[in-house]
Amino acid sequence: MKKVCLTLVFGAFVLALGLSSASALPPFDKEWKAKYLPDSAPASLKDAAGTAKCNVCHEGTSKKMRNAYGKAVGKYLTKADFEAVKADPEKSKKYIVEGLEKAEAEKSASGKSFGELIKAGKGPWEG
């Protein structure tokens, strides 16, 4: 009986680890990484993004909770608008990239734009 219980607990733990890395809208995450984390990107940004994962845009315990950068991105990228263009890969990529570029111009708490932070090798969520 102990082995069965232990196996079930271990299985639930492994399942929970797999679920925690899922992002709300994978195409947004994919295009963000393609735009800001190419091979030539600063190692500091790559490391910070790898550590932050979903917290690039989100914070807290709910995917609806966003940090300052996530709120800026959310002004220009919505799930509803994405649903309208997702059938066409070219349009969906254009929609996402344009939204990310618009969010770059928004100011962080430090007074620098999110684009300036990214170009400096800092995560935009670091503010």
Rank of each mutant, 00 (worst) to 15 (best):
K94Q: 15
A41K: 06
S92N: 08
K75C: 03
N67Y: 05
K75D: 09
A68E: 10
A34P: 00
D47K: 15
A72P: 05
S23F: 02
N55V: 00
A68R: 10
K30R: 14
A49S: 14
Y76P: 02
D81K: 14
L77Y: 06
D88W: 06
M65W: 03
A49H: 14
K63F: 10
K93Y: 06
K91F: 03
D39E: 15
S62Q: 08
L19S: 12
G50P: 05
F13G: 02
D47I: 12
K64H: 06
T78C: 05
E83Y: 02
K63Y: 11
K53T: 04
L37R: 10
A34V: 09
A43E: 15
L37H: 04
L15Q: 06
R66T: 13
E31I: 10
P27A: 05
L45E: 08
A52H: 07
L25I: 10
A43I: 13
I96C: 05
K93P: 01
P38L: 03
S20T: 13
K30Q: 12
L17Q: 13
V85P: 04
N55G: 00
K86N: 08
A43R: 13
A41D: 09
A72I: 07
D81Y: 02
A68L: 11
K71Y: 01
D81H: 11
V73G: 01
V85Q: 02
K53L: 09
D29F: 05
H58F: 08
S23G: 01
P89M: 05
L15H: 09
S21W: 05
A24F: 12
L45M: 13
K86M: 10
D39S: 14
V97H: 10
F82C: 04
A48W: 09
P89R: 07
A43P: 01
K46V: 06
A80L: 04
T78A: 05
K63G: 13
D47C: 01
L15G: 00
F13P: 00
P42R: 09
G70I: 03
Y36Q: 01
L77H: 06
L37G: 04
A49P: 00
S23Q: 09
A22T: 11
E31D: 07
Y76I: 02
C54W: 01
L25A: 07
D47H: 07
K33H: 15
P42W: 05
L77P: 01
S92E: 12
A48T: 10
T61D: 15
P27C: 02
A49M: 07
G74D: 12
A41C: 05
G60F: 05
V85G: 06
W32R: 04
T61G: 15
Y76N: 11
A24D: 15
A87I: 00
D39G: 04
E31W: 12
G70H: 08
V14N: 04
Y95A: 00
K93E: 14
E83F: 00
E31G: 01
A68S: 15
A49T: 11
A34R: 14
K46A: 03
